[in-house]
C-alpha cells in the first residue's frame, strides 16, 4: 500500500490523468459523440415516399429550414426569447440591487435561498402553477373581475399575434410563464455583478456632486450591465429550447422546441429535427461571442 502510494506521489501527472480519464471519457464519448451524431444526421435526408432516413450527404434538409413556416417558427421563438429576457432584466433588477447593496449578511443568505429555491424545485410544477392561475375560471380572472378590468383583459387578448381565447392559451400567457420560470437565472448574475461594485465608488460619485439618480445611471447601471448580459444567456437560451411551456400554455403555432419534438417523434424525421436544433445552437454561439465581448463571463 505504501509503495503504491509513493509510486503515485512521484508521478502527479499520471494521477491527474487517471482522475481525468473516466469523466472525460464519459463526456467525450457519450456527450460530444452524441452531438456529433446529431450534426451528422442533419446532413442526411428523409425519403418522402418510404419514410426512411437516407444516409447520404445533402444540404437539402437545411434548405427546408428556409420555408416560410419554418422561418416563422425561428422568428417567433427568438422574439419570445428576446421579450422574456428584457422583461426578466427589468423585474430582476430591484431585488438583485437590494440583495447586493442593502441586505445584511444574514438576510442575504436567506434571500439568496429564496431566489434559488424555486429554481431547483420542480420546473414542471411551476409551469403547472401558471396553468392554474391563468385559466379562464382561475385566480387571475377572479382578480381581473374584482377590479373591473375585464375590458382591458379582453382588449389584450384580442390583439393579433399575441392574443388568444384565454390567457392560458395565448402567447401572453406563455410570456408570463417564461418570465417566471427563468427569473432566478437573471437575478443571481446581476446580484453578483452589483456585489463587486465597491462602495467607495458610489461614495466618490456622490462626493463629486452626483445626485443619487445620476450615480445610478452613470455608475451602477454600466457596472451591472455585464451581469444582465450573463443572465440573458440563460433566459435567452432556455426560452429558445423549451417545448414544455408552448405545449402546455400556448396555441397551435409552433416554437422551435415543439418543431424538433414533433419532427423526430411522429414523422421520424430525425434529419430535419437535427437541422432545426442547429438553429438555437448557431444563435447561442453568436450570442455567447457577443456576450464575451461585453464582458459577461466575468459576472458568471
Amino acid at each position: 500500500m505504501n509503495r503504491l502510494s509513493t509510486f503515485f506521489y512521484k508521478r502527479p501527472a499520471l494521477v491527474t490523468l487517471l482522475l481525468l480519464a473516466i469523466p472525460m471519457l464519459y463526456m467525450i464519448v457519450v456527450y460530444l459523440g452524441s452531438l456529433f451524431a446529431l450534426l451528422l444526421n442533419s446532413f442526411y435526408f428523409l425519403e418522402e415516399f418510404t419514410g426512411l432516413v437516407v444516409k447520404e450527404f445533402t444540404l437539402s434538409t437545411y434548405v427546408q429550414l428556409f420555408k416560410p413556416t419554418n422561418l416563422g417558427i425561428f422568428g417567433r421563438t427568438a422574439g419570445m426569447a428576446l421579450a422574456v429576457t428584457i422583461m426578466d432584466a427589468l423585474i430582476a433588477f430591484p431585488l438583485s440591487y437590494y440583495i447586493a447593496k442593502f441586505a445584511s449578511r444574514r438576510l442575504r443568505t436567506y434571500l439568496y435561498i429564496a431566489v434559488t429555491l424555486p429554481l431547483w424545485s420542480s420546473y414542471l410544477v411551476r409551469v403547472y402553477a401558471w396553468k392554474l392561475i391563468l385559466s379562464k375560471e382561475g385566480i387571475l380572472s377572479w382578480f381581473v373581475n374584482l377590479f373591473h378590468l375585464n375590458s382591458l383583459l379582453d382588449a389584450l387578448l384580442s390583439l393579433p399575434g399575441i392574443g388568444g381565447s384565454s390567457l392560458s392559451l395565448s402567447p401572453i400567457g406563455m410570456f408570463i410563464a417564461f418570465c417566471y420560470i427563468w427569473l432566478p437565472y437573471m437575478i443571481v448574475p446581476i446580484q453578483t455583478a452589483l456585489e463587486r461594485v465597491p462602495k467607495s465608488l458610489l461614495e466618490a460619485s456622490s462626493d463629486l456632486g452626483a445626485k443619487p439618480s445620476q450615480t445610478f445611471r452613470n455608475v451602477i447601471l454600466p457596472l451591472a450591465f455585464p451581469g444582465v448580459i450573463a443572465g440573458s444567456i440563460f433566459t435567452f437560451s432556455l426560452t429558445l429550447g423549451d417545448f414544455i411551456v408552448p405545449q402546455s400554455l400556448g396555441n397551435s403555432r409552433f416554437f422551435i422546441g415543439q418543431a424538433v419534438y414533433s419532427h423526430q417523434g411522429t414523422s421520424g424525421n430525425i434529419p430535419l429535427a437535427a437541422a432545426f436544433t442547429m438553429g438555437p445552437v448557431v444563435i447561442m454561439v453568436v450570442y455567447l461571442l457577443i456576450a464575451r465581448k461585453l464582458g459577461a463571463f466575468d459576472a458568471l
Partner: peptide, 19 residues
C-alpha cells in the same frame, strides 16, 4: 449540457442511441 438548450442534448442522445 446545461448551457445548451435541453432539446439539443435530448435529440443528440436520441439520435446517437437510435443509430
Amino acid at each position: 449540457p446545461i448551457a445548451l438548450p435541453g432539446i439539443v442534448t435530448g435529440i443528440a442522445l436520441r439520435s446517437a442511441i437510435g443509430s
